[in-house]
Design a protein around this nucleic acid. Structure first.
Lengths: 339, 339
DNA sequence: TTGTACGCGTTATCAG
DNA sequence: CTGATAACGCGTACAA
């Protein structure tokens, strides 16, 4: 920058003004400076800029380290977050954090990031408390039990499940089960998506006068297969299943088929909060309610940056419904055989 | 840091020495300083540190923006890279880059990152040339056609395919086809994994005196299904298929089944360079050759950091074989029916 | 409108 | 072994 200044016969400050357009500069001087910058291939040093302005223009994405395999949804989410950040002149750094709140303090204490994006949020999340203590600006992907004062972006599980039930019941189904991920024992106990889906399911079923049936399983295809047989054992006349964990959906379908149930002729399967790509890896093609991964990533970043730059102190709170994409795994209930 | 120095009655320089352990400090003074740091909750400012030391301890992961959906392998790779970086005191920033080499210059010009990790490398990659021009330290995940002078970490497609063929032929198969991702037209033309897998397949087949049959398809289940029928049309007596694109593997299996072929009884399917998770989403469970995504991420980061810190100028070059995991989609060739 | 000079929090180079 | 002190490259009052 010093070089540019000399080249254009101006002071270093003036160069700074045109670079940041913080002050009016005479058109001709500006032109000289711009030319000089072009000739010298000038790029402002982001580190020095950060030190002087006390803002790094970096936001950190906190994600659980060894915790759990991130699902198919997570990737699209991470990439779109990076793109959204980039579009607004920010960089996204990945901070793997092993559920140890102290690590967190270390990281933010360093002053690398202006703000933090927290994913895989649990209903009671110590990391959120810690972030508040530290006074770092942050936004959540997901939400705690009571997120009233927080900025968050999340899927609207309540409505997604209700919509899913609307769809399934509109096909004539009445005996509808829910398969959720088993959480107890793991350090993900209290994982929002699962908890919210289940409670919404129970409420919606009761409201319709239907009897809920919930089975939990490991978050993988094998778990889904086990769940399928448990379902049939619990209620052999089940006609529809909603699966809230994308990793076990495939197993539920194949488990049902192996047990002699045709899908969707005998039993319909609807996988919620997943991706079309995940649903395509199934035969029959899964009917899905697609997680808006890209939107979540983008909106999360925007919420955080708004908070960093904006004057508005009120938190951004967004809930997105997963849109239904009808595949081949759901169909109208068949005439009930007398049994 | 100034506060710490005052608190401990030493100069700011001495504090720096103990913080970075760059010089010997008398045990008692060190103790005083450590105590002062603890009391004040001192954390060194990484930005100032970066400015002064001219090293940010940040490495950038360049990944293709809108290009192509990143596969299941990519996520484990990204997360493990972040963890490896974190373990060595570095941060990983995500830089989405739309195959536009200029963007790249802008980003590195800013001096945010000490080095760059480039993924989804193509055989002829303009980004690599650009990185060399810039003089930025970098390492590749994947490799160009002639990577002799570069640091890279990649899968050994040549050997993986050969190993796969060994396995399949050991089961008695002779008519073995290969399904690859169709690249022409897309901006991924020349994508290493596909090109290398195909050429290795052709070589290995010819060396064995077998006739190669290659079908290309879209990188998704639907593409795989199409490929399956093309395969059967091209050679109705095929008994084994190797699929080099993880996203289409499922479609190949289900396409074969729909065409009346039993898997593995009539046709064996082996999916290479994929994840166990991907293989589990198939019925029968896919036999796979597992991409070492976590190792690649870790080794790529280590290679880069070694280059950044080390005195060694010789590039790290690592090729990892995908280990075979036998599932249920491969079996000994059946006695040939007279047809 | 433009230039001067100081501050940002560390590192690094010298003297002592 | 320890203490001044000069960079590091840029933002920004304040002065001209």
């Amino acid at each position: 920058m010093l070089d540019v200044a000399r080249r254009a016969n101006v002071s270093i400050a003036t160069v700074s003004f045109v670079v940041n357009s913080t002050k009016q500069v005479a058109p001709e001087t500006r032109a000289r400076i711009v030319a000089a910058m072009a000739e010298l291939g000038f790029r402002r040093n982001v580190v020095a800029r950060a030190l002087a302005s006390r803002r790094t223009r970096i936001i950190a994405l906190l994600f659980p380290a060894l915790d759990r395999r991130l699902g198919s949804t997570a990737l699209s989410f991470v990439t779109s977050a990076a793109e959204a950040a980039s579009a607004r002149g920010y960089s996204l750094v990945l901070w793997p954090i092993s559920n140890d709140a102290d690590q967190l303090t270390d990281l933010i204490g360093g002053g690398l990031a202006d703000g933090v994006l927290l994913m895989a949020v649990q209903m009671e999340d110590p990391r959120v408390d810690r972030l508040q203590e530290c006074g770092v600006p942050f936004a959540l992907i997901g939400r705690t039990r009571d997120p009233s004062q927080l900025s968050f972006v999340d899927m609207d599980f309540e409505r997604t499940v209700a919509d899913g039930l609307d769809y399934v019941t509109s096909l004539g189904h009445r005996r509808i089960a829910l398969v959720v991920e088993r959480l107890d024992g793991s350090n993900m106990a209290g994982y929002g998506p699962t908890v919210r889906s289940e409670s919404s399911y129970r409420d919606s079923m009761l409201r319709r006068g239907l009897e809920p049936l919930v089975v939990s399983c490991a978050a993988n295809p094998a778990g889904g297969r086990v769940a399928a047989s448990e379902l049939l054992a619990a209620d052999s006349e089940i006609t529809a299943v909603i699966v809230s964990n994308e990793d076990s959906a495939f197993g539920v379908v194949s488990g049902l088929i192996h047990a002699g149930c045709r899908v969707p002729d005998d039993v319909s399967v609807l996988s919620i909060a997943t991706t079309p790509e995940m649903g395509a890896n199934s035969d029959p093609l899964l009917s899905t309610m697609n997680a808006p991964g890209k939107e979540l990533g983008r909106l999360g970043v925007e919420a955080l940056i708004d908070q960093l730059e904006g004057e508005t102190t009120e938190p951004t709170q967004v809930l997105l419904v997963c849109p239904l994409q009808i595949g081949e795994s759901t169909a109208a209930v068949r005439a009930k055989p007398l049994s």
